[in-house]
Nucleic acid binder design. Structure first.
Lengths: 236, 236
DNA sequence: GTCTATAAACAGATAGAC
DNA sequence: GTCTATCTGTTTATAGAC
């Protein structure tokens, strides 16, 4: 009686007249759940609160997702699809191997800088992204199968792509241990401004982290990246 | 009837014969709570589970801490005290202003490198630190007054100290916006290896993150730091 | 498909015996 | 100080009316 499938038929089996009404309820529940799971955590969020936030009925969660756990998985799939889109727009085709493009070091470095800036914009500035990032961070804390979706759909391909750009920019082999770690450090320094948001705000004396603050962070991250790339290039 | 005070009198008001028995229960509860709050989160952890892990009675939580919330605060205080000790050993007197020491840039840079290496050792390698870091990260997600203790006791003084070293190493003013952000990026790149532990392990093909893996991370972080410091110094 | 009523389990807090 | 029993509220899941 429940519908656990991610994709759904438009011709519903039910007798509802307006097609898509069920889908709207479904999406409203997912968006509300991401918001609340991100803000308060999975366990701390009751299905009642989710239903209220989505202006839907409590029973609809069981109907659409089979239960709270199914809703969590649906959230992960929703997020993976959304981020793939954002990342794809910033990096081009993620499945493309940058080494095939024969990029000049300067061009590869420029693309890395652009990727970092996009990451800052998404992580640090965008308020809508807050709950999404929080959701992912919480899932990372106690890995469930929900994280598999996000890892395989987003993390792995994006990281691999960045490693390819790193090779083109520095000469370090893309899949070497050093390169993979280095790319993680580049990403990590940005992610911290989301995770450590509260201590950062206090220490920086920032009331809120808006566009001005985000561009200050981006400027430092850019300088860091350039300095590191240059040092790696000179190494040979 | 409850004892909310952090420090306690050794001459207990109760009639127990062995002095310190209560204190042992108290500490066992705190350690168990840190472990479970870190692993599963505050809301997901029941007081019953904590009592079982500490081999103590459920009622003892109410007795010693007034309730679950009081136990959370006690955990934060316990952690703040412990980390201050670790940080103090690595950095010397945290309250000392490094600019008073008139350090040569090379010496200041060396101290920063050492601090980063200590941070990697603590964050990435030490398994006992896992739950502690997880606990803090979870508290950061939804700031309560528990985080105030850790922020004021550890975060702020350590960050300030590192900023002082940064000034001595680069010439950038210690309390400038740029320096404070830069120090956060240095710390953040390390912290990520704890938060993103699972995706890192997968992408790196690491079954576990042991001493070998930690030193690989430390090597990259060290190179990053040196490259950035050098670029800042040359800037003038 | 949506909504209500209810079941069954479990939470944290508390009173009081020992 | 420790431990048990119990109160009160809340949780998810489910059965069935509409």
């Amino acid at each position: 009686m429940t519908r656990d499938d991610f994709l759904h038929e438009t011709g519903s089996a039910g007798g509802s007249r307006r097609i898509g009404a069920a889908e709207r309820t479904r999406e409203a529940l997912i968006r509300a759940a991401i918001r609340l799971f991100g803000k308060r955590g999975f366990d701390a969020t009751s299905t009642r609160a989710i239903a209220a936030e989505a202006r839907a009925n409590i029973g609809s969660i069981a109907y659409h997702f089979g239960g709270k756990e199914g809703l969590r998985t649906a959230c992960a799939q929703y997020i993976a699809a959304m981020i793939s889109q954002v990342a794809g727009r910033a990096l081009g085709d993620l499945t493309a191997d940058p080494s095939r493009l024969q990029l000049a070091p300067e061009e590869a470095a420029a693309r890395l800088v652009r990727a970092i800036e996009t990451l800052v914009g998404f992580m640090v500035a965008r308020p809508e992204a807050g709950e999404i990032v929080q959701f992912i961070l919480r899932e990372l804390g106690q890995p469930t199968d929900a994280i598999d979706v996000i890892y395989n759909g987003v993390f792995e391909p994006v990281h691999r792509h960045l490693c390819g750009l790193w090779e083109a920019a520095t000469g370090d082999p893309a899949e070497s241990e050093y390169t993979r770690i280095a790319v993680f450090t580049m990403v990590g320094q940005i992610v911290y401004f989301r995770i450590g948001r509260e201590p950062v705000k206090r220490r920086m004396g920032w009331g809120e982290i808006g566009p001005r603050e985000a561009s200050a962070v981006a400027a430092v991250a850019r300088d860091n990246l350039k300095a590191i790339l240059e040092a790696r290039r000179k190494r040979t």
